[in-house]
Design a protein around this nucleic acid. Structure first.
Length: 112
DNA sequence: GGGCTGACTGACG
DNA sequence: ACGTCAGCCAGCC
């Protein structure tokens, strides 16, 4: 396993199943950095292909804006393709689709 | 080696 | 519920 922090982020991200989303903070927490959400975002900036980068959203359940580009629209399209339903306000219900690394079973709000 | 920036987050008003 | 402020961490001038 690579000791690189970025590699860890990608590896942990790879454990997130389709149809689920995870926040930057949750990823950072999974790596031991409860306040390193920004670093995770930095890692996403150079995310190599083959990783579900689109499953990473902010704690509000909203797609983070990265300035310019249609990456946001693409991300939403990919998530919707996995069965995730966006609210009318353009946000994702984190209580339903949010993924936690600690508890991965008995999700009361299991999405259909 | 110092300081700025950023795909963030939680707290406040 | 919404806009603003400050804190945190690693990478890059």
């Amino acid at each position: 396993m690579e000791g690189n922090l970025f590699a860890r982020v990608y590896a942990l991200l790879a454990t997130v199943p389709a149809g689920r989303v995870v926040s930057y903070g949750e990823l950072a927490r999974g790596l031991g950095m409860s306040r390193g959400a920004r670093v995770v975002g930095w890692a996403m900036r150079t995310c190599p292909e083959g990783f579900p980068w689109h499953r990473v959203v902010n704690a509000r359940g909203e797609i983070s804006q990265r300035g310019i580009g249609e990456g946001e629209a693409l991300q939403r399209a990919l998530l919707e393709d996995e069965g995730i339903v966006f609210r009318l306000d353009g946000r994702i219900d984190m209580q339903t689709y949010g993924w936690r690394f600690d508890v991965r079973a008995t999700p009361e709000t299991e999405p259909s």
